[in-house]
Design a protein around this nucleic acid. Structure first.
Length: 440
RNA sequence: UCCCCGAUAGCUCAACGGUAGAGCGGCUGACUGUUAAUCAGUAGGUUCCAGGUUCGAAUCCUGGUCGGGGAGCCA
């Protein structure tokens, strides 16, 4: 066998005219008698390998003939630029080493139903479209963290097992926890990240969060990833600027580093190129006016009274009125979490904002300035019917060097779904957890 | 939790109360430019489960299971 070091397909252009060894899996194969084409993928890309019977040893041609879809192999050959090749290069094969011969790979190169594909998610992730989506997910995660790090943020990991419901709202997954009763899977790192903020100034937590709600839509998972930055001394205004800068940086980086993936997904990138600060802002009150004026344009979109929350149709309607993500700020206090700071000019609303994505992907970000006064915070905990004893540590943050501060949470899967323009967020995470999906 | 829809070959589907079918995939063969190749041949069935109606049920009825789309809730 060849002694050449293994080369990645992504770097094949560097080896034009040279012999290389590639290691990967057969993505597709076409036999034409004495000529065989093998489309090889190695995770970094795909390349067509060409085998002419008269140009190779008998055992090499025989090996090429027996290769099936998703068989693993090492292929040695000469890299040759070719205009007929989709990637611009082909490999003229000299040797083939079959590593493992696959029989009856379930996912054929044809249309499949979603149930079948979800049941084979562990194999489906090899397919080009899924590969592109998950590659962009990884890039969004890296872009977000590297941008925050460059701005002086420190990653501060918050617990997944918690003793109480953080916000006291949504349904939580419970699990027995030794002699301490139930533990709950975190629905947010919000409260804990505030402790980190008081220690490091600018922090973020990034990890899976869990909601036991029986949501059954294309925008919901029971396990999803959330990135939650928190900044000391930051006002509501500072918070919005941070959000639009971070999201713009993420989108622009994906545009520059994931060109091939966006092509695979057939994403119209002109809409993404517009994602630059500043983003439009409207108040909750202005949003109600907008809904009143245009509600007939979206099915199921009824006029709302002041104090009612938006439904999915309302968010869709608002999104259609702007060509960038749009902030809706200053919601009625009763609609939001207990820890949000009242607007000093209008105590009936809080200094918060939801960022609604264009193209009907719903709320990407929810953020707010937090209450920094211990007395007010304790009062709000009681008003919301929560147990003050559970929040003593959280109140401590306001008793020892309290400062105004703000933060937000951005849903990773919704962000990726929007950037990729994919219909359902279940394709933006390797193994989606949903109401009726716990396997594989 | 509520509303709507579905389950037939490995996959995607047809058969609409009267013999269980096609395409793709698999296998065999032909082919030196295919890339969801083409052509010929071939194998492949507990029609989701349990009852019921009927001379006869994939088809109609009842219950269940599993799944899909949406709402609410949320990110």
């Amino acid at each position: 066998m060849s002694l050449l070091p293994t080369t990645s397909i992504a770097r094949i252009a560097d080896y034009d005219g040279q012999a290389v060894t590639l290691a990967g899996w057969v993505y597709n194969k076409t036999e034409k008698g004495r000529l065989i084409f093998i489309l090889l993928r190695d995770g970094s890309g795909t390349i067509q390998c060409v085998i002419f019977k008269k140009n190779v040893a008998e055992e090499t041609f025989a090996a090429a003939r027996e290769l099936t879809q998703e068989s693993s192999c090492r292929i040695t050959g000469m890299v040759r630029a070719d205009e007929r090749a989709a990637s611009g290069y082909e490999l003229d094969v000299q040797e083939i080493e079959v590593v493992h011969l696959t029989h009856d790979y379930p996912i054929a190169p044809k249309e499949h139903g979603i149930e079948f594909l979800m049941e084979h998610r562990h194999l489906w992730v090899r397919s080009s479209r899924q590969h592109a989506l998950l590659r962009i997910r990884a890039e969004v995660m890296a872009a977000a963290q590297e941008w925050l790090n460059s701005q002086g943020f420190v990653r501060f990991d918050t617990p997944i097992l918690t003793g109480t419901a953080a916000e006291g709202t949504s349904d939580l997954f419970a699990t027995p926890y030794f002699d301490l009763g139930n533990a709950y899977l975190a629905q947010t790192g919000q409260l804990y990240v505030e402790a980190g903020m008081m220690a490091f100034g600018k922090v973020y937590t990034f990890g899976p969060t869990f909601r036991a709600e029986k949501s059954k839509t294309r925008r919901h998972l029971t396990e999803f990833w959330m990135l939650e930055p928190e900044v000391a001394f930051a006002t509501h205004e500072d918070n919005l600027v941070l959000q639009e800068q971070m999201l713009s940086a993420i989108v622009q980086r994906v545009l520059s580093t994931c060109v091939r993936e966006l092509e695979v997904l057939e994403r119209d990138t002109t809409a993404l190129q517009r994602v630059q600060p500043p983003f439009p802002r409207i108040t909750y009150d202005a949003a109600l006016d907008l809904i009143r004026e245009h509600h007939t344009e979206v099915e199921g979109c009824r006029v709302l009274e002041w104090g009612e929350d938006f439904g999915a149709p309302h968010e869709t309607l608002i999104a259609t009125k702007f060509d960038k993500p749009v902030f809706v700020e200053r919601f009625p206090t009763s609609l939001k979490a207990f820890y949000m700071q009242p607007d000093p000019a209008r105590p009936e609303v809080v200094l918060c904002a939801d960022l609604i994505a264009p193209e009907g992907y719903g709320e990407l970000i929810g953020g707010s300035q937090r209450i920094h006064d211990a007395t007010l915070l304790e009062q709000r905990i009681r008003d919301f019917g929560l147990n003050v004893e559970d929040y003593q540590w959280y109140l401590d943050l306001r008793r020892y060097g309290s400062v105004p501060h703000s933060g937000f949470g951005i849903g990773l899967e919704r962000t990726v779904a929007w950037i990729c323009n994919t219909h359902h967020i279940r394709e933006t995470i390797p193994f989606p957890r949903m109401l009726y999906r716990l396997y594989p």
